Simulated scan of single mutants.
Amino acid sequence: MNIYLVRHGETEENLKKTYYGSLDCDLTNNGRNQALYLRKVLSKLNFDNIFCSEKKRAKTTLEIIGYKENIIEDSRLNERDFGIFEGKTFNEINEAFKDEYTNWMKDWKGYTPPSGESFKTFYNRVKMFIEDIKDKEYDNILIATHGGVIRAIYCYILDGNLDHYWRFASRNGDVTKIKFENNYFYIDSIMPFNNLD
């Protein structure tokens, strides 16, 4: 099985460098251009199934790529919900929520922001999705999702070591190809959006 992970195109919140997992925002013009570029590359492939986050930015990216029907939306592919930290930068969180920020820094995996979810909870729902699809008879699947989800999938592939989350980037418009062969996942390639040819 070949799994193609696509991170959605750029958003205004990306430009502001905020935490915005549960916010439902649209793409910038640059984000739309990133999706158009992906369309040229991914149109060469045939997919047995296409999965998507429920968020507008992921769905719009898929639509621009050329997929509007027969898309399976799955909440497990949504970005992490940062609760009261949503829409704020790292420094703004530190200024507005001193105690919460301190607790988060002490335990980044286990701490749950008020009204949000912990990294462990987030990771476990992403893990459930991956373990569900590995039992399917697919040749090629496409998944449009978020940077945090993609990096959580990397952690899963790397023996569930959550510390690997910080060892990878996932930029807007990037494509990762993962293979599942002989009951084994591995990262085949990570293709930045500006160097896919």
Results as ranks from 00 to 15, higher is better:
M1C: 01
N2A: 03
I3Y: 04
V6H: 01
R7H: 02
G9F: 01
E10G: 02
E10I: 01
T11W: 00
N14R: 01
K17M: 01
K17E: 08
Y19N: 03
L23F: 02
C25R: 12
N30D: 08
N33E: 15
Q34G: 06
L36A: 11
Y37C: 15
L38D: 14
R39Q: 15
K40D: 11
I50T: 08
F51D: 07
K55N: 11
R57K: 07
T60R: 10
Y67H: 14
K68M: 04
E69A: 09
E69M: 03
D74W: 03
F82V: 12
G87N: 02
T89A: 08
T89L: 11
F90Q: 00
F90T: 01
N91F: 10
N94S: 14
D99A: 08
E100D: 10
E100Q: 09
T102E: 12
T102C: 00
K106G: 00
G110S: 06
Y111D: 03
T112K: 15
P113W: 06
P114W: 10
G116S: 03
E117W: 10
S118D: 08
N124W: 06
N124Q: 13
R125T: 07
K127N: 05
I130S: 06
K136M: 15
N140Q: 10
I143Q: 13
H146T: 12
I153K: 14
L158M: 09
D159G: 09
D159W: 09
Y165H: 10
F168Y: 13
F168P: 01
A169T: 02
R171L: 02
T176D: 06
K177E: 05
F180M: 00
N182I: 00
N182R: 04
Y184P: 00
Y184R: 13
Y186N: 08
F193Y: 15
N194W: 14
D197N: 13
